[in-house]
Design a protein around this nucleic acid. Structure first.
Lengths: 251, 251
DNA sequence: CGGGTTCTTGACTAGTTTCAAGCAAAGTGG
DNA sequence: CCACTTTGCTTGAAACTAGTCAAGAACCCG
């Protein structure tokens, strides 16, 4: 599943971690970095469409995303798919398998991905030696809970238009937080089908909703490039509260 | 909001914690207990309907539920409500406010509740002194993530009947895990309105679905007492997988 | 006994899904 | 380099699920 070796950047020491450039991410002290460097066992690359983790397997690798987008999802046995959330640089993947016995969801790459690989069975050492980073993991879990809660509210109580408005702003803000959005514009590396599966709507209805919002000059989504035309109105429609996604520490 | 002092059981030492009786909960060692006892600053009681935590406040108390049910929810500004999940004995309340600056959801009691109160600002000490319990907190977060993920799948992709079947089995199994369910029977301490708000459905449609399932001899829900009449069929309808909720450690 | 919940049911409406079909763009293979 | 296929986007129409409105029954509480 990993891509060919050609053209890969070399793995870097944690002191040169590419995540450091993002202001929204918390800074690490030298002690943390030194320990982390020992905890890191390498890097992994995945191509778009590659399964990174799969539901039902005990596969317990633990990653931090250095670059690229992925999505976390679950399937019903008749094939219905629900996207749980989107994964961007700085996010942790696989903590569940590291603590529980097996994965309860799957993860698939949306773009070429570069991941930092940690040694899962040393997670426990990690907690003993570096309580500050253990605390950061708790922090990341809380942040992710906030996002999941918001998604539950969306799927349970927001209408189609509200869902689209909310999710687009959410994605834009998160992408902007890790330098992946230009002014009022994000590249969304997925199809409308996947977007529909994240909104809990059918593809057809999602498309019609997007077209209508396009007609209303709220957004412009062409060729995977999405532009926020009227942010204020979108926030109103989607009951969006920017407070939702605080900046994050990372591991 | 706390109830009167009369008829309250006395606060107990952690070695006598009532949660110990539940086999599904992990056992704690003597070191853990000794530290916890110092971390615990008392107990709190709430009556049904009492707000335990409120969205938007920095109120950062940290509780473990010793007895009683509650629910976690969010509101849209026009009043639409979505229940995020149900809270039962052994669950942690308020971790989010302990790590983030403010709450992003609210919690309200459904039954009389008895809570163990921890000193929030010592959470960090906690991580330093007792990595094994810090690890347990991570474990609890993962478990709760599994439940939230399943809820997202439910709200996004399950039909009304599937939702009811799934949620009832989920509640039954969790309640049974902490000794709150008799054979095929649970007391559900809430109205159909709240149940509807957990399912992401309207009250009327929820009621009609329940009546139909009653007619089909799948369940019997009378006066807040719910009986599982045909578990096998409910599992099939709700695409329910008991694997979803593993036993838990507690703090 | 009145007033307030909660549950229940019927009739109607609206939002969303399903079905179907066309089109454009990108990839495939001879 | 050009059919041919595949994938993703778009649109209209029909079917259906779930929501809204309304009203009555049962129950509890003061």
């Amino acid at each position: 599943m990993a891509i060919t070796d050609s053209a890969r950047p070399q793995p870097v020491g944690c002191d040169l971690c590419p995540l450091h450039q993002f202001a929204r991410l918390r800074k690490l002290g030298p002690d943390d970095l030194a320990f982390l460097a020992k905890f890191k066992i390498g890097e992994a690359w995945f191509e778009p469409g590659a399964p990174i983790l799969q539901e039902g397997t005990p596969d317990g690798r633990l990653y931090t995303v250095l670059a690229g987008w992925a999505y976390r999802y679950k399937l019903l046995d008749d094939g219905r798919r629900q996207v749980l959330n989107f994964i961007m640089p700085g996010d942790l993947i696989g903590l569940q398998a590291a603590t529980m016995d097996e994965m309860h969801h799957s993860v698939e790459a949306l773009t070429p991905m570069r991941l930092c690989v940690f040694q899962r069975d040393r997670l426990w050492d990690f907690y003993k030696s570096l309580p500050s980073l253990a605390y950061d993991i708790t922090w990341l879990s809380s942040r992710s809970e906030i996002i999941l809660d918001e998604t539950i509210l969306t799927l349970g109580r927001r209408t189609a238009t509200e869902r689209v408005a909310h999710l687009l702003l959410h994605l834009y803000d998160r992408a902007a937080g890790v330098g992946l959005a230009a002014k009022d514009q994000v590249r969304l590396p997925f199809t409308q089908q996947l977007f529909a599966d994240a909104l809990g709507l059918s593809l057809v209805h999602t498309n019609k909703t997007l077209r209508r919002m396009h007609g209303d000059r709220l957004i412009r989504w062409v060729d995977g490039e999405c532009e926020i035309l009227d942010r204020e109105e979108l926030e109103r429609i989607g009951h969006y509260d920017g407070r939702d996604v605080p900046p994050q520490p990372f591991i």
